[in-house]
Design a protein around this nucleic acid. Structure first.
Lengths: 244, 244
DNA sequence: TGTACATCAGTGAACGCGCGTTCACTGATGTAC
DNA sequence: TGTACATCAGTGAACGCGCGTTCACTGATGTAC
């Protein structure tokens, strides 16, 4: 009998394969239809199954949605982290550029998933308060934050224009991100939020098609200009290269 | 017989009143349900009518949606323009602050409508190419642009960090905004887009609830800091006041 | 190794619901003479 | 001013469709002895 670890039987593997297929199909349909909606009936049809079969894997539609949201946050966070780590630690500007580009690329590659996590909350889906989605969001966020913490540590971060914000902000922030306690100075956190907001603005406009009237080369240049502007405003050094 | 101008009979007035009520009801329902969706059945029920009655006023659901989108663009553009004009022409920084604040306030006041025009396109709604919605979008956009054109005219606009973008960008821009021909220099247009993107980022994050973990005062301060950062990066002077 | 039982994936029928849209109609409002 | 007709708002019934979800079931896969 070939190695079938007691912790994961053949049935278990089949099961998680099916779960993956359900999710993948759901994402395919979202992309195909350009929606953040997800219909059990459609998924089942595409998979050659009957709708009730899906209830073996998800208690209801919301449970699937929750998993998709968590996955999206995780994947976005991982994409950003991977890109950042592919650039030498000392090249802070380069890391910011890589981070921003990864954020953009992920959003363009998965506009519906991007909207799912960072757009208007989905119709009829009540996100569980303090639930797994919030946790996933925090984790993705802290991937973005890391860069700014590192920059601040090296003294490469400019103070925000309007200060004194930190007091109130960090109070809230630490309620929600206790892991940052004492680690992230007020101003660093604020600088990160502002950089993120600027990045998010151009990224979401582009991902949702509101810059389609610009030709691709112009969109690229605009994005590059925007990311460099943000870096400069935050006091980050210029990247060694903006090739990638 | 009291003044009933031949151009608008009593029936006509009743008719446009009903159209307004339909739209208003649709917006109420969108807000109530937190969706960009709109259902004829619901609207009719709230208005105490039967669904088929709505077909006297709109050919189908898409036609209503198109009007709602056009209205939203127009209202957003007007809100921005009004705020801008309420500040003395010379106080460019103040005008930018007013513009940005109006953009934010409108988005916070109508998150669903904001998503309707600037979020992920609505499920199942095919925006008519080159149609009225595109026109409305351009008009709203040019309200934002005006400020930067004026600033550039007064020599108060810094050149973007990455230049040479203008060439490609303006070529596309002029295809779509021929009214800007010769009026708006490349760099001004680019500066405007970048400022808009940054503004849009923080605004949409807040409007969709992704900054809810920050207390209101901190959100206000963050927004102010962001808007001032954008102004500084663009070379706009500091506003005389950021009270409003 | 073989047999008896338990587990679980998936089916098919059904329920209740809501949707957009059509159609023939009624009744009220406006218009022409 | 009154009457005959045209216009139009709104109704009620119906069509076809799709949705999420439940339930009792079948048949295959895994497990215990």
């Amino acid at each position: 009998m070939p190695a079938t670890p007691a912790t994961e039987s053949r049935r278990d593997r089949a099961r998680s394969a099916t779960i993956d297929e359900i999710k993948r199909t759901a994402l395919d349909l979202m992309r195909e239809q350009g929606t953040t909606d997800v219909r059990f009936t459609d998924i089942a049809r595409v998979m050659g199954m009957t709708p009730p079969a899906l209830y073996r894997y998800f208690a209801d539609r919301d449970e699937l949605l929750t998993e998709l949201i968590v996955d999206a946050y995780t994947e976005l966070g991982t994409a950003v982290a991977t890109a950042r780590e592919s650039v030498p630690e000392k090249d802070i500007g380069g890391r910011w550029w890589a981070t921003a580009s990864a954020y953009r690329d992920w959003a363009r590659g998965h506009p519906q998933r991007f909207a799912l996590v960072l757009g208007l909350p989905v119709p009829g889906y009540a996100a569980p308060e303090e639930g797994p989605t919030t946790e996933a969001a925090k984790r993705a966020m802290s991937e973005l934050a890391q860069l700014f913490v590192a920059a601040a540590g090296l003294g490469r971060l400019r103070k925000p224009l309007v200060r004194g914000v930190g007091a109130a902000m960090v109070r809230c922030a630490q309620d929600n991100h206790p892991e940052l306690e004492g680690v992230v100075p007020h101003d660093t956190f604020q600088a990160m939020l502002q950089a993120w907001a600027s990045l998010h603005g151009i990224t979401s406009l582009e991902a949702y098609g509101h810059l389609d009237w610009l030709e691709p080369a112009a969109r690229d240049a605009l994005f590059r200009s925007q990311v460099l502007m943000v870096a400069k405003a935050a006091g980050l050094p210029a990247p060694a290269s903006t090739a990638a």
